[in-house]
Design a protein around this nucleic acid. Sequence first.
DNA 1: GTCTATAACAGGATAGAC
DNA 2: GTCTATCCTGTTATAGAC
Lengths: 206, 206
Amino acid sequence: MVENKNKDQNTEQKILEAAKAVFLERGLDGARMQDIADKAGINKALLHYYFRSKDKLFDVIFLEAAARFLPQLGELFGSDLPLFEKIEKFVHTYIDLLQENPHLPLFVLNEMQKVDGKAFFEKLWKGKKPAVHILAKQIDQAVKEGLIRPIRPVHLLLNIVSMSIFPFVARPIVKMGWGVDDTQFRGLMEERKKVVVQFVLDSIRK
Amino acid sequence: MVENKNKDQNTEQKILEAAKAVFLERGLDGARMQDIADKAGINKALLHYYFRSKDKLFDVIFLEAAARFLPQLGELFGSDLPLFEKIEKFVHTYIDLLQENPHLPLFVLNEMQKVDGKAFFEKLWKGKKPAVHILAKQIDQAVKEGLIRPIRPVHLLLNIVSMSIFPFVARPIVKMGWGVDDTQFRGLMEERKKVVVQFVLDSIRK
DNA sequence: GTCTATAACAGGATAGAC
DNA sequence: GTCTATCCTGTTATAGAC
């Protein structure tokens, strides 16, 4: 249980990678254990040997995906950067993340809806819930100081997050509606790093 | 085939309503014919009598949902309203739509990813593809006239659409992250109608 | 740990009576 | 048109040999 960790690690790692790929693309209901086994280069029985059941395996993947997608930002929100820099850093970080993990947001959003108000969130941010209130205070403060136009923190935050994430979620529509291929789409998202930041600052800055 | 339309209409209608509810909440893979039958107050066999197969039934629902979600805007994009009013109307229309159909966007986005570059879009906008290029021209024009700050039409459009739709897609996260219940969420989205329009105008207007 | 073979079951689809 | 009963395929899960 300690000695053979290398062997385990290898297979277990292969399974996790395969499962991640399949689940993220097809979702819990759409994924097939057979596909995961194939992609991992093993057989179904071994999946159960390692993870007992499909649901158990899914939980591992989902939790990790959600953790990547969501509270990575806790630190950023809570940091003591000036507001404008915080916004810039947020947008860049998030768009970079999604460039590398295009299926991430839709997967998480989708599966999250099925569990909804569950105690799932507790498990997700164990104790250290994203410090969204710190950012909120910072925004309120900036308004009070007359540094930015009046806006409720929720809305400003929602705006920034929306503009950063949504295009990836709507990828097929963007591609069809605007007639771009994958490469062009990538370029477009790259552009957005600057565009979104500029857009936000233009809006809130007096 | 003409005489008994009333009877048919009733059952068929019940089925369609039930199917819509179940499919929108669970997706194609997650939906169970049994659940649809139950919700419609009939039995499985009758579903097949009316719609032959699960896939066929799904196609009806999906196409209608996509049609509601997407190209309803064609008219708006193509209209001859001034830019600022067009933006305002768009945001209000869309948020109203989603207030009444909260599951719509995630459902469409999600299922759309599975078909992706398919000839599906052809079927969707039969001939009358949303007149997105008209809006694009209008934006370019406004930039050239110095009416608004320079911005590429794709990005402006993406920004507006993102801010209008994304919060509904991320509903569970918003609710948990900000600690609001359904009623408060509704109020928040209602607020956004004005907030988003204001935000956009503040950003682009010189 | 890893495999093959098979059990166990869920869920979509059909037959046939009414 | 609507129902009950049943079939049948695909998929998760387990048994047991190596």
